[in-house]
Design a protein around this nucleic acid. Structure first.
Length: 412
RNA sequence: GGAGGCGUGCCUGAGUGGUUGAAAGGGCCAGUCUUGAAAACUGGUAUAUCAGAAAUGGUAUCAGAGGUUCGAAUCCUCUCGCCUCCGCCA
């Protein structure tokens, strides 16, 4: 059970009521408070009875009277234990549904409340006088680099084959990211693309059974295909206790990502912007609580530098309370300028999940005064499909060819 | 997938129904001794949770979940993990 969260609610229910409201979540905090009281009542009673029982059985030789008394206590204890279990189960279910509390500077509201913080980089100039207007990526490289039609034939909608130079660009991007992030102590990882149900729960991805329908899930094995390496990296250290000196622990992972995109019928159906399968490089950090804000700044800085290195104009968006995913307390998106579509599109996202995931996964570190939960953070380095789109549209030439970004040339 | 073995504290390892949160050793921390260190000696050394201002006390924890019993690390059932052998396979 999320006992730590429960204790915090006990101490400050108002804070959680407000937070839940800001995040448009439906959780009855008052009910949790009263359930908690009830639960502790049962606990107190059962613990008292158990200590009585112990003191009797400790004697070894006891009267018929004692025996009778002990026997009746035994049944009573069983009843109470059942009640304790039930209360715990109900409490746990409710606690799981509480999203992470947003940090104070997160804009409150639905997706329209998200704020653009800054625009960086110079948008490439395409002029009609030069004889061409920028095209959308698919019009430039369809079949040559990206084959959606054959993917539809082979699998179905929302898939794409990458081929030719697109593949070489992918691996150049991968190599470039590993090299760059190594300088900041990020450890490269290739995780398994699957995790257990327990791990998914721990990452705060599934809070109830109905969430299963939105993921690729094998019920007979209780195993999921990961939607992002975040799920595999966080789960990797569950039930571990770090030494203080080992934090922050930074990873850069390369993995496949599987998305059902269940809630987005009809949206972005063209091309490979929104697909069921893609590959992604993801940063993940375990940090001390007092450092997590700084670590999130590092994630954002890395993401911005990667875009600048690539020479792609972008803007930074502060994500609103209603648009963040449950585990996050603070998120930034980066949206790349797509000249062919004449709009910004999300290519990166980073989040500070504070102790939301570490509480569920039981990941702590030792401090001078006891153990504390670590904070977890994650951020996109490059999502291959989307960054490829950005490269194609920004580096298109008059003759329809695509220039390779300078920084990638030495890797190709 | 089949057969067998194992799962105790930071580590090694004892414990097969009754003051066992758990022997012993190692490690670690503190003290004595020493110019300093080592050695030796002495003492300390789990976590969670509830009550309490605190001191402290209750409860739980010997892979996990159930069960038997007045009482379980110890007996029974199931699950998980690890090891060995066979089968299969990049």
């Amino acid at each position: 059970m999320l006992i730590d969260l429960l204790k915090q609610i006990r101490e400050n229910p108002e804070y959680f009521k407000q937070g839940v409201q800001k995040r448009f979540a439906q959780v009855d905090i008052d009910k949790i408070v009263s359930l908690d009281k009830e639960w502790r009542g049962f606990l107190g009673e059962v613990e008292f009875l158990r200590s009585e029982q112990k003191s009797i059985s400790k004697n070894k030789q006891f009267s018929q009277d004692d025996l009778e008394k002990a026997k009746s206590m035994k049944t009573r204890i069983k009843e109470l234990e059942e009640q304790v279990r039930n209360a715990e189960e109900e409490l746990d279910k409710m606690l799981c549904q509480i999203p992470n509390m947003p940090q104070d500077d997160v804009p409150v509201g639905d997706e329209t409340a998200s704020k653009v913080l800054r625009e960086v980089g110079e948008k490439p100039k395409f002029s009609p006088e030069d004889g061409f207007a920028p095209k959308e990526y698919l019009d430039l490289v369809e079949d040559k680099w990206i084959d959606v039609k054959r993917a539809a034939k082979a699998i179905g909608a929302r898939f794409g084959y990458l081929r030719g130079d697109a593949v070489l660009i992918e691996y150049a991007l991968v190599r470039f990211v590993f090299d760059k992030l190594a300088k900041h102590g990020f450890i490269p990882v290739v995780p398994p693309a699957m995790v257990s149900k327990k791990s998914m729960k721990g990452m705060g991805v599934i809070d109830s059974e109905k969430d299963l329908a939105e993921r690729y899930y094998f019920p007979e094995d209780e195993i999921f295909l990961i939607g992002t390496a975040e799920q595999a990296i966080g789960a990797m250290h569950q039930d571990e206790i770090f030494e203080e000196k080992d934090l922050p622990l930074r990873y850069i992972a390369f993995s496949p990502c599987f998305r059902k995109e269940a809630g987005s019928y009809g949206r972005d159906t063209k091309g490979i912007l929104r697909v069921h399968y893609f590959e992604k490089m993801e940063m993940f950090i375990f940090s001390k609580p007092e450092d997590s804000q700084k670590e999130q700044e590092l994630l954002l800085q890395m993401e911005e530098e990667l875009m600048q290195d690539l020479g792609i104009p972008y803007r930074v968006v502060r994500v609103s309370t209603g648009d963040m995913y449950n585990p996050s307390s603070s998120s930034y998106d980066i949206e790349a300028w797509m000249p062919g579509q004449n709009q910004y599109r999300e290519t990166h996202s980073n989040s500070n999940c504070t102790d939301f995931q570490s509480r569920r996964l039981n990941i702590k570190y030792k401090t001078a005064d006891g153990q504390k939960f670590v904070h977890t953070l994650n951020g996109t380095a490059f999502a291959i499909g989307r960054i490829l789109i950005a490269i194609i549209e920004n580096y298109q030439q008059k003759d329809g060819s695509i220039e390779i970004p300078k920084i990638l040339k030495k890797y190709m």
